[in-house]
Amino acid sequence: MKTVEILDGGLATTIQDLGRPNYQAEGIPVSGAVDNMAQRLANVLVDNEENAATLEFCMLGPKIRFYCTTFIAITGGESCPTLDGQQIFLNRVYRVETGSILMFKPLTSGRYGYVAVANGGFFTKPILNSRSTTVRLRLGGLKGRVLQRGDRLPLNECFKMPSYQFREFSTEKMLKNKKDVEIRVVKGPQWNNFTAVAQERFRENLYVISQQADRMGYRLSGTRLPVPDNNMLSEGTILGNIQITRDGLPIVLLTDRQTTGGYPVIATVVLADLRKLVQLDNKHQLRFKVVSFKEATAAFLAQRTELKKFKIFLNKQRYRYPIGPARKTAQKIEQLLVSKS
């Protein structure tokens, strides 16, 4: 099997897929990509299953050398990637060759970025049906840790990419100037344990993501809420749960969260807005808007449908000119045609 070499690990680069949801009853966290829409998109762009293992990086991406021909796509935060010194775009597929070097600048917008490689992703050893890394448990990924200089990651080489020219996805631009960001939520299981004052304040507060923000969860800072005084029994947690801790401030639970928790959950971030939240920097303030489960579900279905439509579109382009490097001969013919016209 071919490999890529990590020349520089970046800040906190790990292998992630969509996680291991089936072991939560045993206390094992789900893990997986924090911005799972970005990870799905990266995989779709290189014609993978959405669950294929990608590289997730945080704030500063890694420097990588390829030892084979393949195709890559970068998604997530604005990471200014360069391939052999040439600037390349996000959300688009590129061909890389043996010796190619991919590197990044510190993120200018967003927090997490993803690198997908064609032909199945990175083939580190799966554990409990997933390749995701949970660093605090030394579980999964490559030796259960963040990647460092000298690491080699296995992958399949790849010479053809169907509908190559069409593998570009235009996403909404990351927020640049807008001051407040609205994050939709649904009422949580303990919403009614909070006083009307607390509920009101929760809706009106402007919060900022604090320094304590990682794959387990983001602590927010802002005005404190009055906390219900009765102790509750611990319950199972889900992605996006907003717990209110004893100091009256929220924590949004993310992918590495503990499977159970004993703080009251006032609300849950709607799945369609999670990526907006996880990629939000601390220069912007956010406000929660309570919506119905119906609206939340519709938004989620719409987001997934968009990706599905893109997949269908790509499939339809397979035999449209220009065919691209789908077949080597086709590529040669294409070059001849281009040079003649």
Binding site: Q24, L233, E235, G236, I238
Partner: peptide
């Protein structure tokens, strides 16, 4: 059903909205 978490007095059931619903 995509995952379950039994706790003291609750059972959390995660599901795939493309296969079933509340």
């Amino acid at each position: 059903i995509t995952g379950i978490i039994p706790a003291y007095h609750t059972l959390t059931v995660n599901f795939d909205i493309f296969q079933t619903n509340y």
